[in-house]
């Protein structure tokens, strides 16, 4: 707590930007984001794009799991629904990419609501198993509904454009990603301090008490599922348009675990945490790839050890964070911030 930092109204306490300094830092960060694609290599911009898609999906999952407390092991399935919706709308019905994005979100939200219906009846463990089943069922549908999804051959997607402006390369697509990330994060950050966000948190903390103080459980749980899946759908649509192809292999169970790992490593119930987590978990495999390249150069033949390393690293990250820092990177960030804020008189 800073000295002399008194909040006199609730509105002031709920403000996103608590001080001028925060606004200033955020401004600097934005300038950095805008300069970023001009000064770095195509590979780094590619990674930045991947981080962007992860951020959108992770923020969505955090709304559901971190804020509302409903565990979903099937987030990748909703990402898949969004991705296929967009791909099919663009290639079959000739929709423009821009129009297909909201539709991808809506259809994914609809799928999420269907999966969310059991959440009123089952919770905790059972809900987690139900969403797990949903993941496998959707995966099955992606593979076997060949007339629609073209099965394992996948669908090729044209690059989006406005007028004569084409978004083909990583650097061009970066602007689309950046736009949607800012929109998504901003909406989520505002949502959690609204009536709906407070209802979500109440449901997470104790659903029965929430119902008693007049929160309609059915409505809010379903909204949480819908909003979370909407994010997932948008992330999926952007992701596959960026990759220019969609196949069922893009949405395995492992991806769902990755999204959960992001919000756990980043911090459950924290929008900033989802961003940290998404960056961290997306960078980890890239770092491993890099290491494997290094090993290949110096000790050829040993680089195969890095293939399963990704799973071990994810597993270790999840386990270690849960045991030692259950509130994630967001908490570590806060601690560092507080240390410097009070330094050198921390008492």
């Amino acid at each position: 707590m800073r000295c002399g930092d008194f909040k006199e109204t609730y509105i002031k306490d709920e403000e996103i930007f608590q001080s001028l300094f925060v606004k200033f830092c955020l401004g600097l960060f934005f300038i950095f984001l805008i300069i970023f694609p001009f000064v770095t290599s195509a590979y780094l911009v590619y990674v930045a794009n991947m981080i962007g898609f992860s951020i959108i999906a992770a923020v969505g999952l955090n709304l559901l799991t971190g804020f509302t407390g409903q565990i979903s092991l099937g987030h990748a399935a909703f990402v898949g629904v969004g991705a296929y919706t967009s791909a099919i709308l663009v290639t079959r019905l000739g929709f423009s990419f821009w129009l297909s994005i909201p539709f991808a979100g809506l259809i994914a939200a609809f799928a999420g609501m269907i999966i969310g219906i059991p959440s009123l009846r089952v919770k905790g463990l059972y809900l987690c198993i139900a969403t797990l089943a949903a993941q496998f069922i959707f995966e099955f549908v992606f593979i076997h509904w060949e007339s629609m999804t073209k099965g394992i051959t996948g669908i090729n997607i044209p690059a989006p454009s406005i007028g004569s402006l084409q978004f083909v390369t990583e650097k061009e697509f970066y602007w689309i990603t950046l736009f949607f990330v800012v929109l998504g994060v901003g909406y989520a950050r505002n949502l959690v301090r609204s009536r709906m966000g407070r209802a979500f948190v109440a449901i997470r903390d104790r659903d029965l008490s929430a119902e008693i103080i007049g929160i309609n459980l059915f409505r809010y749980k379903l909204s949480a599922f819908a909003i979370s899946s909407f994010y997932a759908g948008v992330a999926g649509a952007l992701w596959v348009t960026f990759l220019k192809v969609v196949t069922p292999d893009h949405f395995p169970f492992m991806l769902s675990i990755q999204y959960l790992a992001m919000i756990i490593v980043g911090g459950l119930g924290s929008t900033l945490g989802s961003i940290f987590g998404a960056i961290f978990i997306t960078l980890a495999p890239e770092l491993l790839n890099y290491l494997s390249e290094v090993v290949k150069a110096y000790a050829p033949g040993h680089e195969e050890i890095f293939v399963p390393m990704k799973e071990v690293v994810f597993g270790l990250l999840i386990v270690l964070f849960l045991i030692f820092e259950p509130r994630g990177l967001a908490e570590i960030w806060n601690r560092i911030k507080n240390f410097f804020r009070l330094w050198p008189f921390s008492y």
Binding site: T65, L125, I264, V307, G315, I323
Partner: peptide, 22 residues
């Protein structure tokens, strides 16, 4: 909370799987 316990077993599964692969 229950999510931590479930996720820790999933993490454990990943570690075991990766190690077995190695």
């Amino acid at each position: 909370p229950i999510i931590s316990v479930i996720m820790v077993t999933i993490g454990l599964g990943l570690i075991l799987k990766g190690l077995m692969y190695m």
